[in-house]
Design a binder for these strands. Structure first.
Lengths: 208, 208
DNA sequence: ATTACCTTGTGAAATCATTCACAAGCCCGC
DNA sequence: GCGGGCTTGTGAATGATTTCACAAGGTAAT
């Protein structure tokens, strides 16, 4: 299949979220226009996004809410459970470990790791914080699919290397630093200070 | 000035971060190629990004690390302090309130708000959690520039409306829901579950 | 001062993403 | 079964962003 733009995948995910709400409200069908109105997209964009993956609608009528939800879950790989390890049990790691939004969408936190003995052995939302030295052995045993990196910038690359070497193929990084991964590994980064800097830019250039 | 793409601003911010590191290592000058190598950009992209704002380099030599850092800080509006209020003192709000990366870059948390009486009065990294009912009065008094929204999805829009009505012009949203703001307000969203879903998509489509 | 060598700044070209616009298809009422 | 009214799916057009490629300008060594 042709490579799909990340912006498209991001929107599909947003469509799915709204479809679930819409379904809960008892609606059977939805048009591209209604779906678009939600996230600021256009109806043409919704149709184009979906067209990369097939034909899901009925002309004149729109899309079946439940059928489209299923298709999107299938496309996004959400018809299954994903196991996640969190590396770093500081403020951010702890918040992530306890974030309900992950489990709600099929992402299971199966391990949280830290190197600080003061944190090891503590429990976060039912998951015990384990010693970072166990990381390799645990990844080999639990075969998690995704690693969340929530350690200081200086430590991040070394830990990414370790989880990659242990077989992890997808990483979500919260450390404010660029990271290198082999091509076969997918890396995404969330950088909160950077988001604030973009706001800062917007504020000083508000009069454009 | 011509409107600058968000992707450009994002990269400028990344360049600045690396320049600061590079400066700490004692380097005087840097070429567009060295700067690019960092974040996976190309040298042409670095030069193009900078060219939107002026000429900062010397042909044959590169850029002065310190001069370029200053220019970027100026462009991004980082030559000053920004005051930030955090709405929501749950897991994520608390983690944000205590995140050192913000203060380090000139973003001062001047207030944290929650509606849960059990949280009000508590203290997070020196900042006392205040009652959400004080929000309007405090914004009027403290004139913060930026609001971070860290409340459940259902509550987010109402709180955004409140901070916007109180005069906030820039919002960073952590609630997993789309939000509406007037045109004059800049809104950015960080959606962690959505990031995981993009990884999920990448994992199921790894063989492309 | 001249030469050899680098690196910038920037139009032009290429690529990527979004929007337009409309034929084709489907539902529904009659 | 036919016609009116909607809405999809999709090429074509537009717009945005990235990459290319090279003239222009600077350094440094001799």
């Amino acid at each position: 299949m042709k490579r799909i733009a990340e912006s498209t995948v991001r929107r599909l995910s947003a469509y799915l979220r709204f479809l679930e709400e819409f379904e809960a409200q008892g609606h059977q069908t939805i048009s591209s226009g209604e779906l678009a109105a939600q996230g600021g997209a256009t109806s043409a964009q919704v149709r184009k996004d979906l067209s990369f993956f097939g034909s899901f609608g009925k002309r004149g009528l729109g899309y079946s809410v439940s059928a489209l939800s299923s298709s999107l879950r299938e496309i996004l790989g959400l018809g299954r459970q994903w196991n996640v390890v969190i590396v770093g049990a500081g403020k951010i790691g702890a918040a992530l470990a306890q974030y309900e939004g992950f489990r709600a969408r099929g992402f299971n936190v199966v391990g949280v790791y830290d190197e600080d003995p003061a944190r090891v052995g503590g429990t976060l939302d039912g998951v015990v914080v384990r010693d970072q030295r166990e990381l390799e052995a645990d990844i080999a045993r639990l075969k998690p699919h995704i690693a969340l990196i929530a350690v200081p910038a200086e430590a991040a690359q070394a830990l990414v290397d370790r989880v990659v070497r242990s077989g992890i193929r997808a990483i979500l990084n919260f450390a404010p630093t660029p990271l290198m991964v082999p091509e076969k590994v997918t890396l995404r980064s969330v950088n909160m200070a950077l988001e604030l800097e973009i706001l800062s830019y917007a504020l000083v250039n508000a009069d454009d």
